[in-house]
Simulated assay, not measured.
Amino acid sequence: MLQILTLTVPIYLIIALGFACVRVGVFTREQMGVLGQFLLRISLPCLIFRAISQYRLEEVLNPGYLSVYVSGSLLAWLGGFAYARWHCRHGRSRSALYGQAMAASNSVFIGYPIAQPLLGPAADIALPLCLLTEVAIIIPLTMALADAGENLRWQQSLLQSLRSLLKSPVFLAIAAGLGWSATGIVLALPVQKTLTLLSSAAAPVALFMIGGMLVGQPLRGAGQDLGVLAAGKLLLHPLTVLLMLWLLPDFDPPLQTAALVFACMPIPVLLPALAQRYGLAGFCSAALVVATALSFVSLNSWLAMAPWLMQWVQRH
């Protein structure tokens, strides 16, 4: 347990530092947006490209991992959508965002800094596969249904989402990394070092930004829904991925552990940005606050149980 805490506590200390710096006025909340642009357009694409390009294509496109993580994430998405749509009687837009909140993880900014020292190369392979699941399946599905709730045909909404996806720096980095991986060419050493320097900034800058963005987020007015979203992300998503690990054929054990670890992560910082066009940015930001705070307990608990859970999965 102490080894796990040495990995997770620094993550939350950097988040707390970002919160404190914005709270006391060292930085403004608006300045966190500049950090976000650097992350999304420079540092994160470099991290993704480097993580993919250093492995062979057949290692990166692991069908076992994709089948487990995609199916588990879709089950969690359906759980969130069903809760909002039929239990709470929310509209289609809000229901789709509930689904995304439960099915998309903060894979890069919290997941990777924890998984990489814990799992090594398995985390490098798992990260782009998690991002591919989210940017190619979960986000387009969410946007298609959310836009359809605004009286657009879902086919038209899906097409618009896919067009936006093709321009996304994250998607372009995944595509470029896969293309380079397919060539089998090793990157020149100066290029490798440049990518390493740029990508190494992603985690600490992102964690600092997360803390800064949490300042001033409203937490009132939807207490029950916030609790359900946090529980869905921190409990339901790992459980659905664990179920798929049990039901579907086995693959590389470290990658199986990586699938569970990434599913345990809190709500991604991208969700409030997606929710802004539907007037739900405040609510989704509040959900992000609650899930990120509670994840300190849930994440450490999942990590402590992971070795036993993986043994149970592999025996069955």
Rank of each mutant, 00 (worst) to 15 (best):
L239V: 13
W302F: 06
G216P: 11
L214C: 06
P113D: 05
Y12R: 13
G221C: 09
V34F: 14
A103P: 05
D124Y: 10
T194N: 06
K193I: 14
S181F: 07
V68W: 05
A103T: 00
G18H: 01
D124P: 04
M213Y: 00
L57P: 00
A203D: 04
I14S: 03
W246M: 09
W302K: 13
E150P: 02
P140M: 07
K167M: 12
L255C: 10
S161R: 14
W86L: 00
M32G: 03
T8W: 11
V191W: 15
Y55M: 08
F171G: 00
N151I: 04
A126G: 15
M265A: 11
A293W: 10
S73K: 12
W77R: 07
L239P: 04
Q116M: 14
Q54C: 09
Q31A: 11
S43D: 09
R23N: 12
E58Q: 14
L260C: 09
A222P: 05
P113I: 03
L236H: 12
M265W: 04
V135Y: 01
Q31M: 07
V34G: 13
M310T: 14
R29D: 00
R153G: 14
P113G: 10
G149C: 04
P121Y: 05
F262S: 09
L152Y: 01
F296H: 03
